[in-house]
């Protein structure tokens, strides 16, 4: 049986989306690979883990990433709103550690609408905001067939303009067209 085609991805522009789960970073990197000229990644400066640009290399050119180091989440959200509204950075990614309320979520949506840009919040599990356009739960999967696999499971767990669905996805960096690089596969073991 052919797997269902992916909906809601690439992420809709002029909207803010959310991703959670162990593979949220990879989801963000794959989002960055979708025809974005510049990506702004907002992180809090105290975080001990570092974003490794060579890890981003299979997905997109890390030199188009800008990193904004902020003091706290409020400052990060201000930076994100300003960048979304401006429109010269087409994708803004933020790592959140606390839930945001509806007002903040709406503000981000309005900013993205004004700037015709896309926002993506990487959130801890279960801390989503109601204002988000879509929410994705991304988990890595063990692939018994292929070594060095990038198999993962994307669950669309919130969708304001459609139905929810699950996909098993693999990233194929060898393809030249960014749209072809996401390969939807059948669930493993079937």
């Amino acid at each position: 049986m052919q797997p269902k085609p992916l909906i809601c991805f690439p992420l809709a522009t002029s909207r803010v989306h959310e991703a959670c789960g162990a593979n949220a970073f990879k989801f963000a990197a794959i989002s960055g690979a979708q025809n974005h000229t510049r990506v702004l990644w907002v992180r809090q400066a105290w975080q001990s883990d570092i974003l490794h640009p060579i890890g981003l290399l299979p997905y997109y050119d890390p030199s188009k990433t800008l990193l904004a180091q902020v003091k706290n989440q409020v400052e990060g959200l201000t930076v994100m709103e300003e960048a979304l509204r401006d429109g010269s950075v087409s994708l803004v990614i933020i790592e959140l550690d606390q839930p945001i309320n509806l007002t903040v979520g709406r503000r981000l949506q309005l900013a993205a609408k004004t700037g015709k840009t896309t926002g993506l919040c990487i959130i801890p599990e279960g801390m989503g905001s109601n204002a988000a356009e879509t929410r994705w739960q991304c988990d890595p999967m063990f692939d018994p067939e292929r070594a060095d696999s990038t198999l993962m499971c994307w669950r669309l767990i919130k969708n304001k303009s459609g139905t929810l669905c699950d996909w098993y996805v693999r990233w194929d960096a060898t393809k030249s067209n960014p749209a072809d690089r996401i390969v939807v596969v059948s669930p493993p073991g079937e």
């Binding site: 640009p53 030199s63 180091q69 902020v70 300003e82």
Partner: peptide
């Protein structure tokens, strides 16, 4: 101009790129 505005908020050194 966006960099300048963000820099006024969080400091121009805190917006970085990877080399």
């Amino acid at each position: 101009d966006l960099l300048t505005r963000l820099g006024a908020r969080i400091g121009l050194e805190n917006i970085q790129r990877f080399l």
